[in-house]
Amino acid sequence: MSEVEPGMVAFLILAPMLLAMVVQCYIAHKYTERFESLLTNCTFVTGNKKTFEHAGLVGKVMRTGLISMVLTMPKMFVRRRLIDLDEVRRFPPSMRRLLVSLLVIHILLATALVIFNYALPVNVH
């Protein structure tokens, strides 16, 4: 059986990871304010906006990622009274799918990278 080249496996994980990050940056740059305007009664979202609004693109990526978390696990935030569940339910389904999909892609690729790192045999010479 032939051995798998570690560099190729790393490329097959890192290339989509980079592409997903570029897409995340574009969406964050273009739509962060739109997403936040749909969640004005959510103290978690408004608090993050105040915290990260002066951080440029990195701040927008953080804010968009945190909104993705709110849309993915709203019950966790409702229990702590950080979001308005009605606003989250009214969030447009197409935007919700986009943000949740990006979050899932990031998590899957990061997990694949960690698994690959631990599954890689160590050659001690």
Rank of each mutant, 00 (worst) to 15 (best):
H125P: 13
S94Q: 07
P16A: 02
M21L: 13
E5C: 10
R79Q: 11
T111P: 05
K30F: 12
R90A: 12
Q24Y: 07
L120I: 01
I115F: 06
A20M: 07
V61Q: 03
M21T: 12
K30P: 10
V70H: 03
V9Y: 00
Q24M: 09
S94P: 01
V122L: 09
I107K: 05
I107D: 06
A15D: 11
F11Y: 13
M17I: 05
I13H: 03
F116T: 09
K49I: 07
A110G: 14
H54P: 01
H54Q: 09
L102I: 02
P74M: 01
I13R: 00
F77V: 02
T32R: 05
T32G: 10
V45C: 03
T40L: 14
N48L: 05
T72W: 12
L38F: 14
K30V: 12
A110S: 14
I107A: 15
G7A: 07
V104D: 02
R97K: 08
V22A: 13
V70G: 05
R97D: 15
L71S: 02
G7D: 05
L102K: 00
S2N: 13
I27F: 07
V70R: 01
R34A: 11
H29Q: 10
L102R: 02
F52I: 00
E53S: 11
V22G: 10
E36A: 09
V124C: 13
E3L: 07
I107N: 10
S68M: 03
T72Y: 13
L39W: 04
G59F: 03
M8L: 15
T46M: 07
A110F: 11
D84T: 02
L66A: 03
T111F: 09
Y118P: 01
V23W: 06
A10P: 04
K50L: 13
A15F: 10
L98A: 08
M69G: 15
H54R: 08
L108Y: 03
G47T: 04
V61E: 02
M73D: 14
A55V: 01
G47K: 00
L103S: 14
L85H: 07
T32Y: 11
G7K: 00
V70E: 04
I107G: 11
I27Y: 08
P93M: 09
N48M: 09
V4K: 15
P6K: 00
A28T: 04
M76V: 12
I105L: 14
C25K: 08
F91T: 04
E33F: 06
V78F: 04
G47W: 01
R79M: 05
L19D: 05
R34M: 06
S68E: 01
D86Q: 13
T43E: 15
H106N: 10
V124Q: 14
L57S: 12
K60P: 11
L12R: 10
T51P: 04
S2G: 13
T111S: 15
E53F: 08
M8R: 15
L66N: 09
T51H: 14
V22W: 04
T32C: 12
I13T: 01
M62L: 13
R63D: 05
Q24K: 12
Y118Q: 06
P6C: 04
L19S: 06
M21G: 13
T40K: 12
T72Q: 14
F35T: 00
L102E: 06
